[in-house]
Computed example of a mutant assay.
Amino acid sequence: MRTSFLTVTLATLAVQAHPVVKRAVDDATVLNFALTLEHLENAFYKEALEKFDDKAFAEAGLPPWARGRFVQIGEHEEAHVNFLSAALGDKATKPCTYKFPYTDPKSFAAVSQILEGVGVSAYTGAAQFIENKDYLTAAASVLATEARHGSWVASAVNRFSGWSGALDVPLTLDTVFSLAAPFIDQCPSTNPELPVKAFPTLTFPGKAEPGSPATVAFDASTPADVPLFVTFLTGLSQIVVPISEGNTVHIPENLIGTVYAVVSTSDTKATDDNIIAGPAILDFAFKSNGQLI
């Protein structure tokens, strides 16, 4: 099994859960949620591309044309920020300060793949809340571009498949925020409050392979007599597996590509109401014949 930097990057940053009063999600809320992510991506590319020049990319073993394409992606993210900010006007959320876990162009490319993938799942999951059809069309346009980014970074640069299957994973607002929160350092106090919370971190400390047992680690307090489950999100499907003694879980067979895992108290379907930790990002690289690497 190929070990991927993608499966461990987010574990380097911890996030603490905090209570949030839920309120109705309207179009402005969804657009500001999207803008929060676009600000993060925009800052990510600006910071890294100022730090690493063409020589640094070449010394890291990346293709000579990679940096130029990343520059174009960064320009797209800036355009997304400007587009959403113009739509929201004086209601638009402002950028925060951030912390990104990369040390060189190669780890930057790995984080890029994570962020683009999360962005695709974020837009896919949030589309259900958009009522204005013009906003929905605009969001679909951004989603398509983010998907093109993610596919290019994964396949052309990081040598992974450009997709995980026929269907992508729609993530909820809370699970997306849980993945974004570790990168966010501090935000302006004047920013509109979003109805989201960050779940505690979920990690797989040892080897994680489909069809094999694995250990999970998370810091969430639940009564000892409440059974817990790890739900694996793949495409539009959820595969629920009980957590056994010693925090062990049997990873389902036939998982390929990017899979999100959460811990919940439900043995049927994980939702923001019953998730207690996660998501963790697992990447099971596979060949063109569908076999795992």
Rank of each mutant, 00 (worst) to 15 (best):
M1F: 14
L6P: 00
T7Q: 14
V8M: 00
A11R: 06
Q16K: 15
R23Q: 11
V25M: 10
A28L: 04
L31G: 01
L31D: 02
F33N: 00
L35R: 00
T36G: 04
T36L: 10
N42P: 04
N42T: 14
A43W: 07
E50N: 15
E50C: 12
D54V: 13
K55P: 00
A56F: 10
E59Q: 14
L62D: 04
L62H: 09
P63S: 09
P64G: 11
R67F: 11
F70L: 10
F70C: 09
V71D: 00
V71Q: 06
H80Q: 02
N82R: 06
F83K: 03
L84P: 01
G89P: 05
T93R: 14
Y98V: 03
F100C: 07
Y102I: 08
T103L: 13
T103H: 10
P105K: 05
S107C: 05
A110V: 02
V111Q: 10
Q113H: 12
L115D: 04
E116D: 06
V120D: 06
T124F: 02
F129Q: 00
E131Y: 00
A138Q: 10
A139W: 01
A139K: 01
A140I: 04
A140Q: 14
A140H: 10
S141D: 13
S141F: 13
A144T: 11
E146L: 04
S151V: 11
W152D: 07
N158C: 13
R159L: 12
F160R: 08
G162T: 02
G165S: 13
L167N: 14
D168I: 15
P170H: 11
L171K: 03
D174V: 07
T175A: 10
V176S: 01
L179W: 05
A181R: 13
F183H: 14
I184L: 10
D185R: 13
Q186L: 09
P188M: 11
N191M: 02
N191P: 06
L194E: 03
P195H: 06
A198S: 15
T201E: 03
T201M: 09
L202F: 12
T203M: 06
F204D: 01
F204I: 01
P205I: 05
P205D: 08
G206C: 08
P210H: 05
S212A: 12
P213Q: 07
T215I: 05
T215S: 07
T222C: 00
A224M: 07
D225T: 13
L228Y: 02
F229E: 04
V230N: 04
T231R: 03
F232S: 09
L233N: 01
T234I: 11
T234V: 12
Q238M: 13
I239A: 00
I239T: 11
P242L: 08
S244R: 14
E245H: 10
N247S: 13
T248P: 01
V249Q: 01
V249L: 08
H250W: 08
I251S: 05
I251A: 04
I251P: 02
P252A: 05
L255A: 11
L255P: 01
G257I: 02
G257M: 06
A261R: 05
V262I: 11
V262G: 03
V262W: 03
D273C: 09
I275K: 01
G278Y: 00
G278E: 00
P279E: 14
A280P: 03
A280D: 08
K287H: 13
S288W: 08
N289V: 09
G290L: 11
G290M: 09
Q291G: 10
